[in-house]
Design a protein around this nucleic acid. Structure first.
Lengths: 246, 246
DNA sequence: AATCAATGTGACAGTGATGTTACAGTCAAC
DNA sequence: GTTGACTGTAACATCACTGTCACATTGATT
């Protein structure tokens, strides 16, 4: 959960999966990994909750029946905390009664699957749920205006020209490009790019934004005439934006 | 497992096929051999498992019904061991019920075929599965810029000049060339090149990368002027790349 | 316009990641 | 056993990236 993890946060989709059946857990984990997801596992509800808070996965898969805290409990708790509120949840259950399904969705799950199912099916559902909630994550290329960002190769192009970026700059841009137009506060940026525990000055964000802007607007031949794609929202933060007076 | 195994991995594709019907076994084995695969056979599940562990084939074909251990059992066991976890499996079954199909995939099979089928069809499926999991295995030559890599002869050429590489260097380059541009973390490289269970320092990867670079850029006549094709992505890993700032 | 707070940005030094070399151990071939 | 190729690790050298400060600008509010 350290360097590599933080680095890759926006590159790979991070899945937290919780199940008390070790076999099932490993099987699903393996299949998700095979499909390019970065997987973290938990074997009981308490564990799942802790990991969810700490690692902020992109999606959570919860088994219904688990020791300590049931999937339902975990789901409800997640929904009550602002930091984890928006993380989509898929609930797994051995029983197939319609009542359960409703109960699961009622408690905040985004999807519900009854066992048995093939790992392939789970992967499909995960993709479906993510497509609904965070479309940008599934793309292998993020685009905005003449900007292109390729997560797999950690590369950014503007107007066809490769833009060299440092890791932090790249991550900031990734986040902004996931939701073009959305304003991100300095704190949000610190959380997503630096990580939760890390303590860094607010102003550091400003400096990185400045560097990012400079890099994006500078041409290789020395020109510096490109329009600024990053908008500063005084008192709030930064956002990607097309029309930028200047 | 190791030296010989790694050595030969990229030369011929090694198939392990397990079926208790002697006729079927011979027929399929013959056809696979005809198509250039190196085939090992087993006539029961226990045998299959042992051979899989010992020889680390590139793909495993399992009959559903077998003495001692069923195909399902073998598959599940394979998936639970780190060394065999990643080997793709095709399951064969006499019955055609959909339930079985799901059950097969549930237990970790990558594909599922119901008898009867033509040997030709099996070969096609084998190729399809391998294409998904290890594309490079099927090519007889990988190319990137002025680089050529021949899996069959374990040879690499740059600009027509043969580059002598050690096994590790060769495998690293193979992986990079399977997906040009994609960034591979040190961990990914360790997994793919060294193997899952093996424990080696991260930095070892760096050293091999350094050796690989040196070998690729050095001319026989002593020149050292070739552009670097390997990009270091700080904090993430390495990737093949044409334009390299420096 | 004057004032104050928020933001932009250049400079700089510290940190940590990466590049590279040297060396010792292992294994196969002879 | 000896040789030679290949590995893994440690140690050292470098270099890129970072965080912070200081000062310049901008924008809002009066």
């Amino acid at each position: 959960m350290n360097y590599l993890d933080i680095e890759q946060r926006l590159m790979t989709i991070r899945v937290l999966i919780a199940d008390d059946e070790q076999n099932q857990l490993e099987l699903l984990s393996f299949n998700l990994t095979q499909n390019g997801f970065s997987v973290t596992t938990a074997s009981d509800g308490q564990d799942a909750l802790t990991l969810a808070e700490e690692t902020h996965p992109d999606i959570i898969i919860l088994d219904w029946m688990m020791p300590k805290l049931s999937g339902i409990d975990v789901c409800r708790t997640l929904r009550s905390m602002p930091e984890t509120k928006a993380i989509p949840v898929i609930m797994l259950s051995a029983r197939g009664e319609e009542g359960d399904r409703t109960l699961g969705l009622d408690n905040g799950a985004d999807d519900y699957m009854t066992k048995p199912f093939s790992p392939r099916e789970l992967v499909a559902r995960v993709r479906a749920v993510l497509r609904r909630s965070r479309p940008a994550l599934l793309n292998d290329v993020l685009e905005f205006e003449d900007l292109k960002l390729f997560p797999a190769s950690k590369t950014v192009e503007r107007d066809g020209e490769v833009i060299p970026l440092g890791p932090k700059e790249f991550q900031i841009l990734s986040l902004l490009m996931e939701r073009p137009g959305q304003v991100f506060s300095r704190n949000q940026l610190l959380d997503h790019v630096w990580g939760h525990g890390i303590y860094v000055e607010d102003r550091t964000v400003d400096v990185h934004l400045s560097r990012l802007r400079k890099a994006l607007n500078l041409r290789k031949n020395g020109g510096n005439d490109r329009p600024d794609l990053i908008r500063t929202v005084r008192g709030s933060g930064y956002a990607l934006s097309s029309m930028n007076r200047k």
